[in-house]
Design a protein around this nucleic acid. Structure first.
Lengths: 218, 218
DNA sequence: CATCTTTTGAGAGTTACTTTCATTTGAGAG
DNA sequence: CTCTCAAATGAAAGTAACTCTCAAAAGATG
């Protein structure tokens, strides 16, 4: 059985979800698990920071954390999981649901993210920051997907950059390309999932209308 | 040396880029390469359709295509590449650049996608469709990233769905979650890339303003 | 035909997982 | 404190995706 993250029941009232997670009623056995998990993560971050992600093997990490490789995999399903997994997700969902339901979703997201980040920065700025850097590196490596030009985001970004006649894309261009790529992918997946029955042109139209309107209805 | 895709010079005039790619001046030796590539892809798609992506080994694919595994890797850098790589990207970029430069980028994208899809559907609807289905499956498998709830898109989608009080998310919700997740990720990456110097709250604000305005300036 | 280059295959090596199973360890009962 | 049970662990062997090297085969060139 893989140890699950404590699925902290979502509070109805906005009682600082991050803080709540940190003072969970720690069972005596649970403490060791938590400590092992933290040790693995800490040693892994250290080694990766020194040697890079790809040059660091799970065996090294396990050795540094003084556990066996098989134990490593009981705590993290894959090596990527170690970097990409995020224990703050439940807190984020709670923060989102704590916003008024009639507020536009975009606004809720913006406020929830800001409040969560504020707390995280206060609590363990260093680790959060290290992690973000690793995520950058790992995402860039991920199985040729992010790397290759065969990536919708790269594609839109290339077009956008060339059209503007500049060398390096601006931040605004990156955000735009990322959002368009994500929405387009969603449209194609929907088409494939619907066995090709939906009219693909209509689907594209509808999808871009959402983007153009700033997701007005949602 | 890995065989490169023919980097089809981008036409200044919109002379049907897809058609152009199909009638490339085929060298005698190139034909075999192309044929091998197609054979590998075809056999792979067949096997994967029968057995699923993860149950199909590269060795099986190579055997079915009557090449050695090493040859397989000369044509496709990774097994994922086989499914996720897309030879239509140059055509897509050309189609995008063929649109008037003063047109809003969102509009250019919508029109370019529609025109490209129209041509692809006419030419090899069956393969395009098979591929989209495989992309769905493989993306869903990809190294625990898409699978896990530790995925920004899942996270926003969960919140959006619960807030609406429904069981299954609508298509509009999926598109919205995808676009917000992509933009947010971009913001965090930018923050990490700038060594944490930029104010994260301002960055989030700015990013969400782009989304809300329908990328007005771009 | 002869030569030169490119493509290919066989085979061995590396590494990231994956699985199995016997052992250890903490929790709770008596 | 000890006994018992379930959960956690480690050792070890297995699988499959890549990687590398080198010699053989096959298209190109003169």
């Amino acid at each position: 059985m893989t140890p699950q993250q404590p699925t902290a029941a979502l509070p109805d009232a906005p009682t600082d979800p991050v803080q709540a997670m940190l003072e969970a009623p720690l069972s005596l056995r649970e403490r060791k698990k938590l400590k092992t998990r933290q040790t693995i993560r800490r040693e892994a971050y250290r080694l990766i920071a020194e040697q890079g992600y790809e040059n660091t093997t799970v065996e090294q990490i396990a050795a540094a954390a003084e556990v066996s490789p098989s134990t490593f995999f009981r705590y993290f399903a894959t090596k990527e999981d170690l970097v990409l997994s995020d224990e703050y997700d439940p807190a984020m969902i709670a923060a989102l649901l704590a916003r008024p339901a009639d507020e536009p979703f975009l606004t809720s997201c913006r406020e929830a993210i800001r409040s969560l980040l504020r707390q995280l920065l206060r609590h363990d700025r260093e680790e959060l920051y290290t992690r973000m850097r690793l995520v950058t590196e790992v995402s860039a490596l991920r199985a040729g997907v992010a790397r290759s030009s065969s990536n919708p985001q790269r594609l839109f970004l290339t077009a956008l950059t060339r059209r503007a006649g500049v060398e390096e894309p601006t931040y605004e261009m990156r955000v735009t390309a990322a959002a368009i790529a994500a929405a387009t992918t969603e449209a194609l997946l929907q088409w494939a999932a619907a066995d090709g029955r939906e009219d693909i042109a209509d689907l594209i139209d509808h999808t871009f209308a959402l983007l153009e309107s700033g997701f007005a209805g949602v």
